[in-house]
Write a protein that binds this DNA or RNA. Sequence first.
DNA 1: AGCACGCCGACT
DNA 2: GTCGGCGTGCTC
Length: 610
Amino acid sequence: MNYYEIAIIGANLAPLTYESQCVLNEFEIVTIKLRNKTQNGCIIKAVPKPDFKTLPVIERLNLTFTQLQITLAKFISYYYTCEIGVSLGLFEPFSHYRKSKCSFIKAPNLSPLQLEAAKFIKKNPISLLFGDTGSGKSEIYISLIREYLNLGKQALFLMPEISLTPQMQERLEAYFGDSVGVWHSKITPKKKQNLLSEFSQGKIRLIAGARSALFLPFSDLGLIVVDEEHDESYKSNSDPYYNAKDLAIYIANKMGIKCILGSATPSLNSYAKFPNFRLKGRFYASQKEYIYDHSPTGLNELILGEISQALQAKKQVIIFLPTRANFKFLICQKCGQSMQCPYCSIALSLHKKNRAMRCHYCGFACMIPSVCAQCNSDMLESRKIGTSELVAQIKEYFPFASIAKFDRDEITTQKKLTTLLKNFNEYKIDIIVGTQMLSKGHDYHNVSLAIIMGLDEHLDYSDYQARSKSLALAMQVAGRAGRANYGRVIIQGLKCEFFAEYMDEFDRFIADEMAVREGLYPPFMRLLRIKIEDKDESKAVSKMQQILGKLKSMAELEIVGYGKCIIELIASKHRYQILLRSATHTPLLKASKIARDYGALPDIDPVNFS
DNA sequence: AGCACGCCGACT
DNA sequence: GTCGGCGTGCTC
């Protein structure tokens, strides 16, 4: 009889020992019984006969994980301190792969500077392509992808949110046709099956996808492109809190895969760690003028005047506002209380559309009250304008303009997204009002005016990346204007001086920000955030205290702070946290494991501090 | 005493 | 993650 340690795929369990008549291969996938239920398991290693009774392996599936997948899964389990069963659960297993070859004739024409960039990328195993919006990064990616595909290799093109960027997909398909497969976690089961089958047949050899595309069964991966590498969406928002960009870098290093990180507003981390090629200037010759409007969020004479001029010139306008609904607050003018979610420490947003107050965290909804729940006063006032209200207000001023809203409430399906983009590019829409969605890589050809509102609050977030995120966001939105030959950008806010200082000067921002972060934050120091959540507040507090007790004596570990999270309550769970800092990873790994022992959630290299 | 519920630890 | 054992507390 043979004995094997088997990781139960998807289970938060250490590998368990089973017996088998046959000799099994490392990493092959089998079915076993756990608590009398059939589950998939992955053979980790052969072990001697244990001193407890073992159950037999039920069936050998004709599936395995690839070397790359195993390497990554082990790294995730090590670096993010989760069980191997959990990290393996992220991956799509491998059935077989037929290597296919076909050459792609069509290649983009590169400018001398683009050629130089491509040469630089070829020379360095991992490099940062620091290229302004519109400077032609895509052609460089495509040119390199083509080279790898023509060598018979597979390529992976990672994007923050593929579903939001149909244009990039179209572009890749224009060059690589049916060899492109689009992957994200919300793909329908049918499409997923088709893609996996074509992928294993070698028909699909370029995957364009969101962070989870890294977990597909690549067997001959030659190139990974991480587009918009500064984007936070590469970071998982549930345990394990992996960062697909960092995983791409790790696997590229480990397995000799070429890796390109691309951004117009790169992360300080990538800038510090990798050689970069600076691609300046715009591919489309255009002028841009910045107007800084030092006033609170909302429409005013300046903005209305600019919109009016743009519309008269038959140009289009985009307006960025990072707030959904009509208003973010409903405040009682008598007692000052804003209406709160009963399950979260979050103000309820006012949605006029279905006459509801809604919590954007847990989904709780109720009717719009007519009196204050605290003091019964009827002097309720809406505060902090959102996209819906802004659309309504603009309609009042420009009744003949066609105005569209572009946010999570409005764009609920892929179809709605493509329809909106199509209508906008066909000039059926004059003005788009939207949230972050708007800043993603869409090409708007006729936009002459971009208005950026409501970023003051972003700058205030107690987050070491508040400045870089805000500036990157503003630059991304600004980059959407002026693919037409002339663009105006209005940045509104009481802190617009910050943007005035750095807009279109990201190089200088990086230099200044490095000085701010030195000795405190990445790329100089590493962070670990431990989250403690419990429905019983006293339990959360005591767990936090116990963890702190264990951490206090640890060497080379600084306890930056601890206490309630900024959002104290979400979905009836009380939230506490500990923030730790270290120059090296090892102390943070130890701390992370201690957190796990108490059922807390360790978030290594956190990007979110709420 | 009998049963529902929720907590917590074990799962090979 | 999820199942089941066990303690608590409510009801008959």
